[in-house]
């Protein structure tokens, strides 16, 4: 669905943010884009949507060049930014003006989603930030776009809405679409993500699926004092060590701890890359 072929990008020519990245995203999955603040997560999302243009390389999204921003490409993509700004009109009027541009938009779904997310039927300027964000989320989910990009979707959402969001995302995943979520709040959405893209310092450290992760490494807890050499990464507290290590064939798989995986990828980049990247 999305191919980055040697794509380079930087906001200025002198300071490249991404250099020659190779990345492939397939449909039928929920991608979690993880990275530290300022690691370039939003930029990667903007590249996919055609909001910023690569300096070099070839980028194909839904068989189109996103740079051209052609209507047939744009109506397959729905981007929900982190910050929300809406005109001061009624939520239904707002939606009614968007709908004609998205041929696969489903009005019934939209109204259902609004109801489930507990969005009041009022003017948008009377809504809180979180409520406005939920309007966008409902709009995006009802657009039936092939590529749905969510930049920090849980920011500003209250606790019940996060649960509904998880249900909504689980309900719209199918073989033909692709959902990309960039998030800091890993725990909000970790049970939904089945593909992980880890970025740091303008580099794609890992792009792999969660099954491969739990097959290749184990997340465990140890209350022993000593630290083993076989650990890829560990975090120590009074309760002992939380550690990541390579899984042996006979060992049972463990639950994926995304936070631990993230920290492992950032601190012990080489070991993680060795395990997951066939090419390098």
């Amino acid at each position: 669905m999305i191919h980055f072929n040697n794509v380079s990008f930087g906001y200025t020519k002198q300071k490249p943010l991404y250099a020659n990245i190779q990345l492939e995203l397939k449909s039928g999955s929920v991608y979690g884009l993880l990275g530290k603040n300022g690691a370039g997560k939003s930029t990667l999302l903007k590249l996919m949507a055609g909001l910023v243009h690569p300096q070099k390389g070839l980028l194909t999204v839904c068989n189109a060049n996103p740079m051209k921003r052609e209507p047939d490409f744009l109506n397959q993509v729905f981007f929900i930014p982190e910050e929300i700004d809406t005109p001061n009109i009624h939520v239904l009027d707002f939606a009614a003006e968007q709908v004609p541009f998205y041929p696969r938009f489903n009005q019934t779904q939209f109204l259902d989603y609004l109801k489930e997310l507990d969005v009041p039927m009022t003017k948008l300027n009377k809504m809180s930030f979180g409520q406005k964000k939920k309007v966008w989320i409902a709009l995006g989910m009802a657009s039936n776009a092939s590529l749905i990009i969510l930049d920090e979707p849980t920011n500003g959402l209250d606790i019940p809405s996060k649960r509904i969001l998880r249900k909504l995302i689980a309900s719209i995943v199918n073989e033909d679409n692709c959902i990309i979520i960039s998030t800091h709040q890993v725990k909000d959405l970790d049970s939904l993500i089945d593909q992980i893209i880890l970025v740091d310092n303008g580099e794609i450290i890992v792009n792999t699926d969660t099954n491969t992760i739990i097959e290749k490494i184990i997340f465990q807890h140890s209350n022993q004092q000593e630290i083993s050499n076989s650990w890829i990464y560990h975090e120590t507290s009074i309760a002992g060590h939380l550690f990541v290590k390579k899984r042996e064939m006979e060992e049972d798989v463990s639950k994926l701890d995304l936070e631990l995986f993230f920290n492992a990828g950032i601190t012990n980049k080489i070991a993680i890359q060795e395990l997951f990247n066939q090419k390098s």
Partner: peptide, 17 residues
């Protein structure tokens, strides 16, 4: 698969597995 995924708020691929 879909019903259970929505109910448990997990990825349908996980339920499929």
């Amino acid at each position: 698969v879909r019903e259970l995924a929505i109910n448990l708020e997990v990825n349908p691929n996980t339920v499929m597995r």
